[in-house]
Design a protein around this nucleic acid. Structure first.
Length: 284
DNA sequence: AACGCCGCCTGATCGC
DNA sequence: TGCGATCAGGCGGCGT
């Protein structure tokens, strides 16, 4: 499941292979994956536009594009949902199953957004970005900010961490992981966390995300060359190097297994209809 | 207005 | 063996 680290890694790779490429046509588009943008809108804006750069905000990908006047510079916004993948492939290859969007680029290349469960988006609407809280790896995410933001919240801290307007990019996996690192019980009422615990929570969130980015960046990507010898990157496809991801989790998906710190069995509970994993001995 | 809950989706897994 | 039920979950939208 893509959270901030996975999106960050993808943004870095796309930023290596997309800039300079021009969109020749929208080959395929699942209209619902574009909402509220229509396929027609997308074609009007994207065809003949050129990719300038790819960045990340929370779990969103921001595609900087440039068209000739009067359209000029604009942005497209991507979200991987649960199962989204984005990569370049030779235009002669068949489209993958569950393609949400396929853009024909120049030089026999194609940009693919494949998304098994279709929870993801590729749109020209940036309104969701406005509602996002601070970047967890930025200066805005600090104990003082958290203290003020959580002052009135009776909700469990685990549930609050999933709120993208509190902090942008933490998902179900890294919320559990960060709380383990901070030794805070996921059930703790958010407003009851004192300054010291908020400080360790901020540190833990940063640490967990930074480590995941580091680990992920070292995973070699499968790749191929196109007709011109350019490298085409295939992100998110099954490769041997992709699988050991599970080993790096301290608690996530480890119900019943021994805590790596104290040996007690990791527990699984359900909060807001989502699984939470924690060690009841280490996390109070 | 914060918060709970449903719907959107498909594939893996489980029980009969 | 085959098939229906259940689960997984980010997030928008809706009801209280």
């Amino acid at each position: 499941m893509p959270e901030l680290p996975e999106v960050e890694i993808l943004a870095r790779h796309l930023n290596q292979v997309l800039p300079g490429r021009t969109i020749a046509a929208v080959e395929f588009a699942r209209e619902r994956s574009l909402r509220p943008t229509t396929r027609r809108d997308l074609e009007t804006h994207l065809v003949a536009a050129q990719f300038k750069g790819v960045t990340r905000r929370g779990k969103y990908l921001l595609f900087d594009l440039e068209a000739s006047q009067p359209r000029g510079e604009f942005q497209a916004v991507g979200h991987l949902g649960m199962t989204g993948r984005m990569y370049l492939q030779p235009a002669r290859d068949p489209l993958p199953k569950h393609t949400a969007l396929a853009l024909r680029l120049n030089e026999g290349c194609r940009f693919v957004f494949a998304d098994t469960r279709y929870f993801g988006r590729f749109t020209l609407d940036g309104s969701a970005i406005q509602a996002l809280g601070p970047e967890p790896l930025g200066d805005g995410f600090c104990p003082e900010y958290l203290k003020a933001a959580l002052r009135r919240s009776t909700q469990a801290i685990k549930i609050r961490l999933l709120d993208q307007s509190l902090v942008a990019g933490v998902g179900n996996i890294y919320a559990s992981e960060a709380l383990f690192l901070a030794r805070i019980s996921p059930r703790t009422s958010a407003r009851r966390l004192n300054a010291a615990r908020l400080k360790s929570l901020v540190r833990a969130v940063r640490e967990v995300l930074r480590r995941a980015i580091q680990l992920g960046s070292t995973i070699p990507l499968a790749w191929d060359r196109d007709r011109n010898g350019d490298r085409l990157f295939y992100y998110g496809r099954e490769t041997e190097a992709d699988s050991p991801a599970a080993e790096r989790f301290k608690v996530y998906d480890r119900a019943g297994e021994p805590c790596r710190r104290c040996g007690h069995a990791i527990r699984r509970i359900v909060q807001a209809a989502r699984s939470t994993y924690y060690c009841s001995h280490c996390q109070k």
